[in-house]
Design a protein around this nucleic acid. Sequence first.
DNA 1: TTAAAACTATAAAGCTACTATAAGGTCAAT
DNA 2: ATTGACCTTATAGTAGCTTTATAGTTTTAA
Lengths: 135, 135
Amino acid sequence: MRIGQLAQLVGVETQTIRFYEQQGLLPPPDRQDNGYRVYTEKHGEGLAFIRRCRILGLSLAEIHELQSYQDDPHQSCTAVNALLDDHISHVRSQITALQALEKQLVSLRASCNDDREVEACGILAGISEGNMHQQ
Amino acid sequence: MRIGQLAQLVGVETQTIRFYEQQGLLPPPDRQDNGYRVYTEKHGEGLAFIRRCRILGLSLAEIHELQSYQDDPHQSCTAVNALLDDHISHVRSQITALQALEKQLVSLRASCNDDREVEACGILAGISEGNMHQQ
DNA sequence: TTAAAACTATAAAGCTACTATAAGGTCAAT
DNA sequence: ATTGACCTTATAGTAGCTTTATAGTTTTAA
């Protein structure tokens, strides 16, 4: 399978595949005589794994870590559990921060009900005067 | 006021101030004979405005847009309202996406209760097999 | 058969919003 | 005279790709 087919199969761009290879997330495939990369089904699985991890919000470094666990299948998987726990708490703190931000934005938005002149705009005034009860 | 004082006043690094100047968000200040930047109170206000916008999650491009409205104080402020509305809905969709992600991660986490061998780890199996009811 | 379209390759730059590093000039105090 | 704190510019690094440039190869259509 060539790079274009693999890309279509998994739903990524060809450049992304080359990028993962360069980053050491995808093993370098064999080459044809003309230099074209030749992929196996294993590469497809590896690439799909990476993409699912990315959809879950894991960083490339975290994915690399998971791969290192996969390569040593008889060790305990507590590290995998810990990685996921860390990631979950990271996601949760992001949610909390964004919810606080949303509240702040909504209250700022309420300070101006359309169609004033910019000079009297409650939003710009609100930002300029810094009445943003932070934290 | 020199750049270090301004930085301390507003709570940013000096490089950040130079960066904003280079990006056209902060007007180039006068220079002393030795080339040092000299800032006025106006610069302080401008910088504080930028920082408050950044805390609200606005991009530098959005801040630039807001500044252009400030420069023309007699036009209607509907564009300002619209910018904020867009930003609020952007934040809300981020929150929604992260909440869905959290759910997915928690269910994945539940598929492995510690201390198995990596080979049997429910988390890695879950990602590999792709039983991630997406969307 | 030939020419265009589609695919592949590498290398380098661009994106965001800074942060960090390097190499050097200026100024006040010791 | 030199130390230290400050200032200058220019360049590279961060994450995870995407875009662009340039060029070679294969496939398809005329």
